[in-house]
Design a protein around this nucleic acid. Structure first.
Lengths: 235, 235
DNA sequence: TCTCGTATAATTGTATACAATCATACGAGA
DNA sequence: TCTCGTATGATTGTATACAATTATACGAGA
């Protein structure tokens, strides 16, 4: 609830403030590979390119540094750190552990309202899967995880997982998912939901953990062999 | 190696730049409870208090926001999020999982040089434990974990864990550790080290995981009943 | 030719000025 | 008295000016 509100405000910032726009533009560009690794980002150049002054650029730099995307050397410059395939893999492995923990805690703390929304999500996704509505399916997929994050009732874990989720969504252009992953993903969601409903924390943890590993395996497999454009990444 | 250099530079920034000082001062103050939860932080007030202009203050705010310590509402203000006892507990639970993963990966990727340093660390700590040198013991304890983070050979995981480690170090003033934890902690380090040396990733993971849980249990237990001043938190 | 020191340019760090937005107070009108 | 609109002040958002630091170029001396 509190975090939900936070995120809304964050969105507002990102949309309407120059700093937010610069921050997201640069993150997008770094993750999509527009900038080479170790490339120097100059404040004035970026500012001119985006039509803003140095101030918002600098503030965006400080945030990017904290996210580990650039490295700022005092009085010298900002250098792109980039993100390798190994980084993505590592994130998925880390995330798989945390998603498991999240599912465990969600089992213990989920509210009836959240449980209802989760059920609704799964059944609605089942419907869209049958109809082949991939876009709605992708959106419901993301929403399922957000529900889980909120249900775990841990500000810290929710924050971590949302960060990772964001991160992963950004690299979808490089490593696109299989269009068939959607329905399969929802099957797994359903199992996780049922484990939570049955208050089986061990099972929920295990399933959520495996769910993330499956998502990764599907992603790299498809990322190497095929590349379906215009489809969202399933998690 | 790369991260090591990064951290050195980061330290330089923090020491010599106003932004770094403001950032760390505010983080310290928030975590130590100087500011109430939901308290508004005003740029000019903070700036005047620290004798700097708004610019470094603003940059520090942006970083604090990303760390989740404050919430910035556009055109309105920055509000302290604070950190509860539950947050600390959650962090330790999250960290225990990631330390486990870290130990696993370290088992697979540790270099002979890192292995040597780890052994040296453990044996040196054993010596200081016998002599009752608590300060050196605390420093070696922190260093042990840093070695582990570097040995896991994952930029992402290392980044995450160092963040958490930093975070935890900051709250030591509120929840101080038992002075007897040092030697016990090092015993556990030794076991972890031996598991890594024996290439037993499963055992290393399990031990590192439990090590963190023990550290937490010790901390809360002691935090509630006693409060030894002037001793560093272990692990 | 090579080395080293100095001068100059480029870049970041910080401070301040101005613009935009939000909160508050106050008064007119119902 | 209550409501609503406006004016005023406070605060943040952005741009620019100045200071400090670093990188580079060039020339003097060996």
């Amino acid at each position: 609830m509190e975090m939900g509100n936070y995120d809304v405000k964050q969105e507002v910032t990102d949309k309407y403030s120059l700093r937010g726009r610069v921050f997201h533009k640069l993150r997008e560009d770094i993750l999509s590979g527009k900038y080479e690794e170790h490339e120097e980002l100059k404040e004035v150049a970026i500012g001119e390119e985006l039509g803003v002054s140095r101030t918002p650029v600098r503030e965006a730099f400080r945030q990017l540094e904290l996210e580990g995307l650039i490295q700022i050397i005092p009085n010298k410059g900002a250098y792109v750190t980039g993100i390798t395939e190994k980084d993505v893999k590592d994130i998925y492995m880390i995330r798989s552990l945390l998603e498991g923990l999240c599912a465990r805690w969600a089992t213990e703390h989920i509210t009836p309202e959240q449980m209802d929304e989760m059920e609704e999500n799964v059944y609605l996704a089942e419907f869209h899967a049958k109809k082949g509505h991939l876009e709605q399916l992708a959106e419901l997929d993301n929403r399922f995880h957000d529900i889980l994050y909120e249900a775990c009732d841990s500000k810290m874990l929710e924050h971590q997982l949302k960060d990772f989720h964001q991160y992963v969504l950004r690299v979808r252009k490089k490593t696109l998912s299989n269009v068939n992953r959607g329905p399969k993903s929802n099957e797994e969601h359903k199992q996780i939901m049922e484990a939570i409903k049955a208050k089986d924390a061990d099972l929920a943890e295990k399933l959520a953990h495996q769910h993330m590993i499956n998502a990764y395996n599907n992603m790299v497999q498809k990322g190497l062999h095929e590349a379906y454009e215009n489809h969202e990444t399933q998690t």
